[in-house]
Amino acid sequence: MDDYPLLNLFLTMMYVFLWVLWFFLLFKVVTDIFQDHSLNGWAKAAWLVFVILLPYVGVLVYLIARGRSMGRREAKQAEDREEAFRKYVRQAARPEDGPGPGGGHVSELAKLAELKDKGHLSQEEYDKAKAKLLV
């Protein structure tokens, strides 16, 4: 370790960081090319060839030419994912349509089972009420 000065260690760490950052940026640009619905197939192929054959220039030109719309597309996708999540949560939290103010066959069946367990309903009464709910 004596042959490797501290400054060289910092420089090596910086190079590794920049190398990882470069690949992240390259993958981000390639992903954006494929996810952009405003580009047709030929335009996507042209951008992809440009980015692969001349990676540094291609990525730089792509960011200059389409960087702003890249950010808008990313924000729109985040909003769409958020809205889909909220819609799923509302749908999952909504009680089933059915009898009773609490709504839902599940809650009614739970109430019937509780009444039967407490002895307020006989097995026969429970079966009749359950059949009524499930029809």
Rank of each mutant, 00 (worst) to 15 (best):
M1T: 09
D2N: 09
D3C: 07
Y4F: 14
N8Q: 14
M13C: 14
F17A: 15
F17S: 15
V20Q: 06
V20M: 11
V20H: 08
L21F: 12
F24S: 09
L25T: 08
V30A: 13
V30D: 07
T31R: 15
D32W: 13
I33R: 10
F34C: 07
D36W: 12
H37T: 12
H37Q: 15
L39H: 03
N40E: 09
G41E: 13
A43T: 13
A43M: 14
K44E: 06
A45R: 12
A45M: 11
W47E: 01
F50G: 13
F50H: 06
V51E: 01
V51T: 05
V51N: 02
L54S: 09
Y56V: 15
Y56K: 02
V57A: 10
V59F: 03
V59K: 02
V61S: 01
V61C: 01
L63G: 02
G67D: 05
R68S: 05
R68Q: 04
G71E: 04
R72C: 05
R73E: 06
K76T: 07
Q77S: 11
E79H: 13
E79R: 12
D80L: 14
R86H: 07
R86T: 02
K87E: 14
Y88W: 08
Y88L: 10
A92M: 12
A92Y: 11
E96W: 02
G98Y: 03
G98W: 01
G100R: 08
G102N: 07
G102F: 10
H105D: 05
S107L: 11
L109W: 00
L109Y: 00
K111H: 03
L112V: 00
E114P: 00
L115T: 01
K116N: 09
K116G: 01
L121C: 12
E125I: 06
D127T: 07
A129W: 00
K130E: 00
L134F: 02
L134H: 02
